[in-house]
Design a protein around this nucleic acid. Structure first.
Lengths: 345, 345
DNA sequence: GTGAAAGCGCTAACAC
DNA sequence: GTGTTAGCGCTTTCAC
């Protein structure tokens, strides 16, 4: 049987289609009795509004596009990271009866800009959520801005006063983690930096330096190694900082994957964690609880951030894209088993 | 500026909108010269067809819904598992200019059936891809079937002749893995079963038994422990089979998460892998290469399966939903470092 | 409070 | 080969 239309409902309820439309869209100015009649007809006919028709007439696709770097293309976002984002975005979409379209892409491709431009023009979504590191690439942001589609940047690394973004307190919380390690008695705390393209991750390095300062510790370049956010790079960075005279007793990695790499190095080389070496990460992805011992890390409120971003796009109440500026959802320390007091010499 | 419509293009090219429509949809019966003119106008105006209008007129949403169990709700699908599925589905969608809508849900909820029914009726997608374990729940499958929406079951565990499904050779390949372990000299090979709801995972247990038979080994219930697909359950299952007199020298887990749990147990208890214990998993999720030593496992061609499922929904050529029956995409053994020859006594 | 009429931008069916 | 004419099912505008 063909699906019931707004006309069928109107006929059955003995009203005009406009009234049905009002009821469906929860508009005011409908008498309760009328509303009742219409609702009865709706459920009797099992009526559901046709989205395409609604979108065509209202010039609103009722659709959000979530754009992020493809976990397969490189090792930037881990699968758990993406899933968390999707969950937050979906939560917001569902509560407002919007649909979510996902669009992973390769941030390294020359054409991301035009690819996303075409996407926005083709779909004409209600809004776009742009995840890091795409959110901190001027070419990408510029391309989307040019289409006129409303968009929110997730963790752009550096806020723009003229756009709307949602971030977390990377720098502050990283300082706090560093202070925590120092409070355990660690004097030589190494840091593994993350991927170049990812500005938000770079902020964590600044936080590390802040933390050293706050704890009265001296910064040493020899206690810093660079990674690219991947587990292997963490493993190699661990080798670099641990195979030298100035040997750290704690390592703080800019993300969990690299921290897991550090633990893998420790395991291979018979170094006890946290007995001989404390390890801390950042993000709190699933992996953090799968490694042994479970990883002390910084819980990044990714789902909440994505949810807030979508809300800003679709909700009239609450913070709105048009407001510009940055909304900060603070992260928190997750103390687990991979960190402990410094060993007596 | 408002977006160009098909009328603008027709005007500029000096043809009718129908001709423009033909060019856009790559229909035949258009002279090359005319096509050329239209294409020029299209790019000059940067014209993109309005999807809502197209869908409304053509009664096709050009949209696929991917339904799977929410990784957050329980520990059934790991994030990597979901991402792989999404990637395959997206690949197929993009090549055909379809959009993908994701819909994670909780398979344990009483209302999944009606939830999915409402979804299908509301969106009226071109088709639905239903992942395991939802794909093997009669209530869920029945609800979707009732809407009349075309759908494909992913790994339903047991094939139906009256529906279309895409599966992998769980049983055969698990037998092969068991034989491989036996070929390394292992005589006592334990198995950790997976989650009840997941029929496809149960097939792996059958494959394990087949493999024992093929290798001339005897099945013993004491070498079997049950898990629920989660890492912790694998850890507990390892404890069960290893803390007994009939101690296995190899453990084959029905998925990678549980295999990682086994390795975690081994690590905690000073058991060398693969020196004293060989460990094998199934799925080949990212985690398999993140644990140390890297996990020998069965590579499940999840992306390929999802891609094939979507193709069946949208592509006229190639296998089509209407064909019914099951398409099998074979898995393969991934030999890594967690398995080795049995230790001399 | 409610309704009538006019589209939204496209495809389908059929004419030429 | 190409064009004309009707809708698709809804929202919008404005009248009452």
């Amino acid at each position: 049987m063909p699906r019931a239309t707004i006309n069928d409902v109107a006929d059955l309820a003995g009203v005009s289609i406009k009234t049905v439309s009002r009821v469906v869209n929860r508009e005011p100015h409908v008498r309760d009795a009328t509303r009742e009649k219409v609702n009865t007809a709706i459920s009797k006919l099992n009526y559901r509004p046709n989205l395409s028709a609604r979108n065509l007439a209202s010039h609103n696709a009722h659709l959000i596009i979530l754009v992020y770097d493809d976990p397969d293309a490189y090792h930037l976002p881990s699968a758990g990271f993406v899933i968390k984002m999707q969950q937050g975005a979906l939560r917001a979409c569902r509560s407002a009866n919007y649909e979510l379209l996902i669009h992973p892409c390769d941030y390294r491709s020359k054409d991301v800009g035009s690819e996303l431009k075409a996407l926005a023009e083709q779909i004409r979504p209600t809004g776009i959520v742009l995840a890091a590191p795409l959110s901190n690439m001027p070419k990408v942001v510029g391309a989307i801005e040019a289409t006129g589609a409303p968009f929110v940047q997730l963790s752009p690394g550096q806020e723009s006063r003229s756009r709307f973004s949602v971030t977390t307190n990377d720098r502050e919380i990283s300082a706090k983690m560093t202070c925590y390690l120092a409070s355990l008695g660690h004097k030589k705390i190494a840091f593994i930096t993350g991927h170049q393209a990812h500005k938000a991750v770079a902020n964590r390095f600044e936080g590390y330096k802040d933390g050293l300062l706050q704890s009265g510790l001296k910064f040493s370049a020899r206690l810093v190694a660079s990674g690219d956010n991947s587990l292997v790079s963490g493993e190699m960075a661990a080798a670099k900082v641990l195979e030298q005279k100035l040997r750290p007793t704690a390592i703080f990695a800019a993300n969990d994957d690299m921290a897991a790499g550090v633990m893998r190095y420790a395991y291979k080389n018979g170094i006890n964690v946290p007995g001989q070496l404390s390890v801390a990460g950042c993000d709190d992805i699933t992996l953090a609880q799968q490694v042994y011992p479970a990883l002390t890390t910084i819980r990044q409120p990714l789902a909440a951030m994505a949810e807030l971003a979508v809300m800003a796009l679709i909700d009239k109440s609450g913070p709105h894209v048009s407001a510009k500026g940055a909304k900060v959802v603070p992260g928190t320390l997750q103390l687990r088993e991979s960190t402990g007091p410094v060993a007596a010499d």
